[in-house]
Structures are given as C-alpha cells and as structure tokens.
Simulated scan of single mutants.
Amino acid sequence: MSSAVLYLAIVAVWAIVLVPMWLRRDTEAGISRLLHKRTEEPAEAEEPAEEPETQEEPPRRRTGRATIIARRRRRTSGLTLLVLTAVAVVTSGLAPWWIILPPTVLLAGHLSLLRVAVGMDTARRRAEAEARALARAKAQEARRAAQTAQTTEPAEIIELPTPEEVFDQYADDRRAVGE
C-alpha cells in the first residue's frame, strides 16, 4: 500500500513540475517553430554541405512582471498543496512519516529562492527609481541653463581705440628699416 502512495506522490510531483512546462512550451510560438522546422527539413537535404546555415531565431516575447508573479504564486500554491497532501496521507496512516520530507524541502527551497528574488526585485526597482530621479534632475538642470541663457543681457560691445597713424605700405614716404 505504501508503494502505491509513493508512486502517487511521484506522479503528483511530476504533474506539478511538468504540466506547466508543457503548457508554456506549447504556445503559439512553439507550434509555429515546430511547423517552421518541418517545412525546412526537405530543403536542407537538397542544399550542398558547404553552404552556411542561416537559421533565424523566432522573436522571444518578454515576460512581464505580472506573468512572473503569477508563475511564482502557482508554484508556491502547488508545493503547498503537495505538502498538505503528504501530511494528510501520513496522518491517515497510508504512508510513513518521511514521505513529508521531499515536498517540505522543495517548498522550503522555493521560499528561500523567493526571498532572494524579492531582494533582487527591490534592488532593481530602487536602481530604476534612482536612474529616473537622476534623469529628471539632469533635465531640470538643462532647462534652468537654457532659461538663464535666454534671460541674460546681451554682451557689451567695446570700441577699440584706433591708432593715430596707420601703416600703409603704399604710402609715398616709404622708409627703409633703420633710416
């Protein structure tokens, strides 16, 4: 009877881990990538071996913040459900006490990774806020500099004194140097 519960626990863990992976992989991009590879396979067989392969990567969609949080919640709730199921199985007497250990270790590891992720998210948000504040300060400084440049008085024009005698090389009374 305990081996059946052990197999059931293994199936539950695999279902919690693999089903979301399969669902994520079978998105529209994944299906189109598979279809794209199938259409290229016969063409690759006809090409000579010296020709370089140019394989285009499909554009990857950026994962948003809400998607990451939803994924974390699903993992946390799935692991919590697994721990509760293991506790229920042990309390009913269907399995030994050590059946609780693997899901508990998984949940504890997941929670510790979440703690690190929250710290990284906080640091990233703080750095982004500081960068925005710095950009705002630079833009404000540039606006102030532009305003002061517009409001300053025009430059004062100074008249230079003209010498009384201007040298003219074509004048009639030219002298040689030293005369």
Rank of each mutant, 00 (worst) to 15 (best):
P42T: 09
A43W: 09
A43E: 15
E44A: 15
E46T: 12
E46M: 12
E47P: 05
A49E: 15
E50C: 06
E51C: 04
E51L: 11
P52W: 07
E53Y: 10
E53K: 06
E53N: 04
T54W: 11
Q55S: 07
Q55D: 08
Q55T: 10
E56W: 03
E57D: 13
E57N: 07
P58C: 01
P59L: 08
R61N: 07
R61I: 12
R62Q: 11
R62I: 12
G64P: 01
R65A: 03
I68V: 12
I68P: 07
I68K: 04
I69C: 05
I69T: 12
A70V: 13
R71M: 09
R72Q: 12
R73H: 11
R73W: 10
R74D: 05
T76W: 02
S77K: 04
S77E: 03
S77M: 09
S77V: 08
G78M: 01
L79P: 01
L79S: 00
T80D: 00
T80P: 00
L81Q: 01
L81K: 00
L81C: 03
L81R: 00
L82E: 01
V83C: 09
L84V: 14
A86V: 03
A88E: 02
A88R: 01
V89F: 08
V90I: 08
L94F: 09
A95E: 02
A95V: 01
A95I: 02
W97H: 04
W98Q: 08
I99D: 01
I100E: 00
L101Y: 03
L101K: 02
P102H: 00
P103N: 02
T104A: 05
T104C: 02
V105R: 06
V105G: 07
L106I: 06
L107S: 03
G109C: 10
L111Y: 11
L111G: 07
S112H: 11
S112D: 05
S112N: 08
L113R: 05
L113K: 03
L113V: 04
L113G: 09
L114M: 14
R115Q: 13
V116K: 01
V116I: 09
A117H: 11
A117Y: 04
M120W: 14
M120S: 07
D121M: 03
D121R: 01
D121I: 01
A123L: 15
R125L: 13
R126I: 11
A127V: 06
A127S: 12
E128V: 10
E128R: 13
A129M: 14
E130M: 13
A137N: 09
A137Q: 14
A137K: 12
K138M: 09
A139W: 08
A139D: 14
Q140K: 14
Q140A: 15
E141L: 11
E141M: 10
A142T: 15
A142G: 12
R143N: 11
R144W: 10
R144C: 06
R144K: 08
A146T: 12
Q147N: 11
Q147G: 06
T148W: 10
A149T: 08
A149C: 04
A149V: 03
Q150A: 13
Q150V: 08
T151G: 06
